[in-house]
Structures are given as C-alpha cells and as structure tokens.
Amino acid sequence: MTDLTTHGAHGSEPTRPGHLPVADVPHVLRVADTDPKAAKRVERQVSSMFLLSILLVVAFVVAYIGIDKSTVVYIPVFGEVGASTIALGLTFGASVLLIGAGAIQWAKKLMPDVEVVQMRHELVSPADETAEAAANYERGKEESGFARYKMIRRTMIGAMALFPIPLVIMLRDLWSSPVSGTLSPAEILSTTIWKKGERIVTDATYLPVRPEDLPVGGLVSAVPASLQEVQHLEGNLNARGKAAIILVRMDPDEIVSQQGDGWDYQGILAYSKICTHVGCPIALYEQRTHHLLCPCHQSTFDLANSGNVVFGPAARNMPQLPIGVDSEGYLIAMDDFSEPIGPSFWERSK
C-alpha cells in the first residue's frame, strides 16, 4: 500500500499539485455520494435488476417445461420462428445480462469513488540479482561439464541437428508414392474413373442418358455409371469429386471450338464440374450465353469455346471429356480426361 496514494471522495487525503496528473482534475461527487435518498434509489435499482434476473431464470424453467418444442410463433419482420427457442434464448440471455448490468451499476454508483495512483519502478533488476544469475549460469556450466566432456557435447549437437530429418523425409510423400507400384499423389490427381465406354449417368438418380434426352439448352449433372460400384471405404467421394461432369447441349453451329476434334456428340458437350481455380463444383450454366460461372470466385468459362476462361481468377480451361454413344444409343465417355481436373498443383505438366 505504500505505493498507492488515494484521493478520497471525501477529501481525506491531500493531493500533490503538479506531480500527479489526476490531481489537476477536480473531483466531482456523485449524487449518491451526497444525497442518501439518491443512494437508496440506486440501491433499489440494482436490487430490482437482480430480482428481475431471478424472475427470468424462473421464466426460463417455466418456458422449458411449458412450451412445446414444435410451437411456432409469428414475430413481425422476422417471420415464423420456434417459440421455445426464442423464449429460452431471451429469458436466459436477459437474466445473465441483468446480473452484469446490476453489478456495473452498483460499482459505478455506490462503491467508493476514489482515484488511485500506483507508482511504477524501473524495469531493470538490481545489480546484486543480475550478478547472482550470471554466477548461477557459470556454476551450471561448470557442474554439468558441458565444456569438459567434448564427446558428449558434440554427439548431442549432432543428434539435435539430425532429428528433423524424418520430418522432412515424410514430406516426400506429397509428391511421390511411398510404395513402389502404387500411385503418387500427382498420378491420383491426374486420373479419374472415366474410361472408354464408361456410361454417363445422371447424378443422384443414376439414369443413363440418350442424346435425344437432352434438348438444346439442356443441362445434366452427371457421373460415371461405375461410381456406384466404388464403395465409400475405397473413396467413393474422392472418385465422385474427380469424375463429376456436366452435360450441356447447344446448337452445333454455336460451338466455336473444342479441346479435341469431334469431342462433342451432336452438340452435346461434357465438361468437368470442378473449377480449375480452387476446385469448387460448378453447374451455374447460362444456356443462352453458354457461360459457366463459378459461385466461389466468379471465374467464368465459355463452354462454346473450349471452356476458355472469360472472367475471373481461374488460369486454365475447364477440362473437356470426349463423349460418344454405345451400341444401345446411350452416351459414353470415349476416354478419361486428357489433363488433371480441378485446381493446379506443382507437378502438373500443363
């Protein structure tokens, strides 16, 4: 307490003008400091806040028991909401808020209103303490024999230097296969389950698609028929993520260019559904402009013109899948994608 100088609300301590900034500000007494009636009023105010908090907790319990969870009430502007959720939230929230508000009001209006100055010291330690710390260090060095046992010192430094190597070696798995004969990450990313003859089926309902099923202006979100056979444990979601395509049909005269000669089938084009920027699935196809818009960062691809990027941050064309029909007249893939689908990674050849 020796460092603290208090300036009492009732003027019990002398101030030191010119030395303490707070002393320059005249201390204004609060109403409750001078008027006992006002103090009584604040006391009632604070205790009624706490009382209201108690009542709200009771209301919370009543609402929890009494309001059916499926009851819906209409609140103007906000619409129809669950009565239970709103009642529980409001009663619990307000009860906690009132405890806080009551405590603040109590502290502001009734607790002693004094300005306090705390002295600060210089941050540097006293000379004898620094000397003692240095001596401790020297003694530790001497007693541990760090300077004396050369072999221990050198092997320890060597061990410390080498232990991060396994961590670095594990990074190798990011670009090459850990076991020979298995695929490297780049190879996994570069291939999908599309292959020649693979039927194109609608996503979610797995219906095979005939060319005549798709009118000009039509759009189908599609997957390979064999996706259903890829079980979840074997990576169904990974296979879906790479193989998802969209089928669109346009007037063949409107196709300006394609990524491969005759990769369409009578104006039906198949493009990857995965954006080449950061891999969002896209199917925002505008049938009149033939633009495919990615909702994540507004990359826009022109499907009538080789899937070229016409706007946005994507750097590469949307990969196209060559398609044809099988002997039963259903649309099939003629090959896998000729380049990795989705976002860029550093081993990409193109």
Binding site: L207, V209, R210, D213, P215, G218
Partner: peptide, 18 residues
C-alpha cells in the same frame, strides 16, 4: 422450358416423379 438463362431439365433426365 428453360426460360432465359436457365437450362432445360428434360423429362428423360428429370422424370415427372423427380
């Protein structure tokens, strides 16, 4: 019918039940 920018979802790929 696929009005304006909206693509057509034909009866074959999106049947009546769907």
């Amino acid at each position: 019918t696929g009005p304006q920018s909206m693509p057509v979802f034909s009866t074959a790929t999106l049947p009546a039940g769907d």
